[in-house]
Simulated scan of single mutants.
Amino acid sequence: MEEKKSHKAPNLLQQLASVAAAAFGVQGSEARERDFAHGKTSNFIILGVIFTVVFILAIWGIVKLVTSLAGVN
């Protein structure tokens, strides 16, 4: 007998975790199915854009830090 899955929409933390996992290609099938069945597309798009901007800024900051520590301007 198969368990019934929760029919609740994912909360903000679950959505953020899904966006991060999907960005790195490790999204689980259960979370993906929950997101497609009950998630709101606009929330995932907005979180995806925010995640991408923060990720790019973090990489840029790390590169600036490393180059300044190495003496390269």
Rank of each mutant, 00 (worst) to 15 (best):
M1I: 13
M1C: 11
E3I: 11
K4Y: 10
K5R: 12
S6R: 04
S6Q: 11
H7G: 05
H7W: 04
K8A: 04
A9M: 02
A9W: 02
P10L: 08
N11C: 06
L12K: 11
Q15C: 12
L16D: 10
S18V: 06
S18L: 10
V19P: 04
V19E: 03
A20M: 03
A22R: 12
A23K: 06
A23V: 12
G25K: 05
V26E: 07
Q27P: 01
G28E: 13
G28H: 02
S29W: 04
E30W: 02
E30M: 10
A31E: 09
A31D: 10
A31K: 01
R32G: 02
E33P: 00
E33H: 00
R34C: 09
R34D: 01
D35N: 14
F36K: 12
A37D: 10
H38P: 06
G39D: 00
G39M: 04
T41L: 15
S42W: 15
N43T: 08
N43I: 05
I45A: 06
I46V: 06
I46F: 08
I46Y: 00
L47Q: 05
L47T: 08
G48T: 08
V49Q: 11
I50E: 03
F51C: 08
F51Q: 12
F51I: 01
F51P: 01
T52P: 03
V53R: 04
F55A: 15
I56G: 04
I56W: 03
L57W: 01
A58Q: 13
I59F: 13
G61V: 00
G61P: 07
V63K: 14
K64R: 14
K64D: 15
L65K: 06
L65V: 03
V66S: 14
V66P: 03
V66R: 13
V66N: 13
T67L: 15
T67D: 13
S68D: 08
L69I: 08
L69Q: 00
L69W: 11
N73Q: 14
